[in-house]
Design a binder for these strands. Structure first.
Lengths: 342, 342
DNA sequence: TTGAAAGCGCTACCAC
DNA sequence: GTGGTAGCGCTTTCAA
């Protein structure tokens, strides 16, 4: 591997000149610069990042702590980050947190070993509060997605889940449903609790009394959506519509309904949350509440890059996105006259 | 950020001793080692990776070039790599190639800048042959997944797609189908061509003449599966079973069939390829051919780590996995008596 | 068992 | 414009 010394020797100048020429700095004669560039090309020179960052203290790497890189939910978010990264020359280094930031040894590797200049933290759970605050003390720039800290120094990007739950439920109510069930995610998780809150708010606003009987909860996975729906179906009077905590749970619900010999949306309307890629492929295509995941990832990266460039994390930004309903064919007007419900 | 000098000062020894103590090398008195370790902890010391790798020439990073990290198909493969990485202490650095290795500037960053010690290359297309060979010349250890080079120096991991296509088609034939269609992926892509080959082989073996009318092709995306199926449905006599080039295409086919008012598997049996997570959630659950993606990723990482540790890429390994059929409910016995086909 | 010194490849400062 | 020099934080001889 050739180094700047090799280039210097070849061109007949000193390494310092080569360094300046390569980095487009002032104070290099144009002809010299050209000669250096040519020699670099001929030798197949590429700067050694370790050596460079040892002196510059910069790695041009951004650490991304994300619950699970494989989750389809995060795919578009990552794409948004990648877009910014490729534009700005940063490299993304991923680390699955599996919902536990502290557990993630990789985070330490990233930050402490000075491998990354900053962090994008997606969906940390509440226990990690302390860790997050320690980052502030340490002066590590970071942006948090899917969580909202009121601390003015923090950069937060999230979507209003209360509004999301409200919008979803309201859509069902506007379709004429009054027995609207909710399959909630784990209520320890903030977003699940918020969506439930929105659900209640919509019921309240419509004058429909909240019935604990119509709410089941589980983890945000299709299996729990499936079992939750089974439980719901066994209760009377049966619900005519269900708001699933996320699309995965909605998939499970769809399956449970099909197995029960009922039809969507004729017997039961189903609405999800997230708008995963797959949701337009379910049978019937799923009505859901879309989160602007691409935009969230993109803006998180932009925000972080800004912090990195100006190195002044004085004031944090707060960006809250509105969720947006996507109406497909799994929800429909409730018509009590055309069928009997058990 | 504390350095070994700080520790040395605190303990009252020289930096070299600290280095040796921290790296568990011989020739350090046990009491000294303990003192160093304690001081390191108290100071919150973490080694600077840039400085370290500048001298050791090691980064403990593995570059993963993958068509698209967000593709559900690659999720499990990545999990397999992550498993090995976490076990061995390596860090994975991902780069989407979007099917074009050369285009991927990030690869250069990784290899040339000596950021990574080796590469796992997933599903490169044929054009990148030259690039791959240049890696050998350069002496960069690497493993290729989803492609088979006969060069003995190369590490290759792949699944036998001819067998896969054969098994899928044979399953349909064994169900009594004779008008078996195939929705193929882009035939420029090796795996698509191979699966088609397997399809033909199975037909041939069963004495069923190959009919070009029963084959359509497109990209490996659900939209093309959808349109391909539409085209197939418009032809007479209509096929009674279809082998989709991958699960995504099968999803599209399922949708087209549903839209045509036909049922799966009563009217048409459908089999996919890959066994994506979602395939057990389609309606009906999809019969498909499973690729051991987790194992492939895991073994690729293991292979690469082995190369890295012993630094002797003399002989490449070839690992070919057998595909495995997963029978769910989208395929069934063909019974020509119970219905009329157009 | 310990320490001094060299050097990895690069940037940056300061003379010239 | 250019080149010498120092030094980033670490590992690794080689002497002591």
């Amino acid at each position: 591997m050739p180094t700047i010394k090799d280039i210097a020797r070849k061109v007949g100048v000193s390494p310092s000149v080569v360094s300046r020429a390569l980095n487009n700095k002032y104070g290099v004669k144009e002809s010299t610069r050209q000669a250096v560039l040519r020699a670099a090309k001929e030798l197949g020179y590429h700067p050694n990042v370790a050596a460079r960052s040892l002196v510059t203290k910069r790695t041009e790497m951004i650490g991304v702590i994300i619950p699970d890189i494989s989750e389809p939910f995060y795919s578009r978010m990552i794409k948004g980050m990648e877009y910014v990264a490729s534009k700005t020359g940063y490299t993304l280094l991923f680390s699955n947190s599996y919902e536990s930031l502290e557990q993630s040894k990789a985070v330490v590797k990233m930050v402490e070993a000075q491998r990354v200049e900053g962090l994008i933290i997606v969906g940390s759970s509440l226990k990690e509060r302390d860790y997050i605050y320690s980052l502030i003390d340490k002066g590590t720039p970071f942006v948090v997605i899917e969580r909202h800290y009121s601390d003015p120094r923090m950069n937060c990007i999230w979507v209003d889940n209360v509004v999301g739950g409200y919008v979803a439920t309201k859509h069902l109510i506007q379709c004429g449903h009054t027995r609207v069930a909710h399959i909630s995610g784990d209520l320890d998780v903030e977003v699940a609790a918020e969506r439930l809150k929105g659900y209640k708010k919509a019921l309240d606003e419509a004058g429909i009394p909240f019935s604990p009987d119509l709410v089941v909860s589980g983890a945000f996975v299709w299996q729990d959506g499936y079992h939750g729906m089974k439980a719901l179906l066994s209760r009377t009077p049966r619900c005519t519509a269900v708001f699933a905590g996320n699309d995965s749970m909605a998939y499970g619900a769809l399956q449970a309904i099909a197995e029960a010999g009922l039809s969507v949306p004729q017997d039961i309307s189903v609405i999800g949350f997230d708008d995963l890629e797959f949701s337009s492929l379910t049978n019937p295509p799923l009505t859901t509440v879309r989160q602007p995941r691409y935009e969230m990832g993109r803006d998180a990266a932009r925000l972080l890059v800004t912090c990195l460039e100006q190195s002044t994390q004085d004031k944090g930004m707060k960006i809250c996105y509105p969720p947006e309903i996507v109406i497909r064919r799994s929800t429909s007007v409730y018509d009590s006259t055309d069928r009997t419900h058990a």
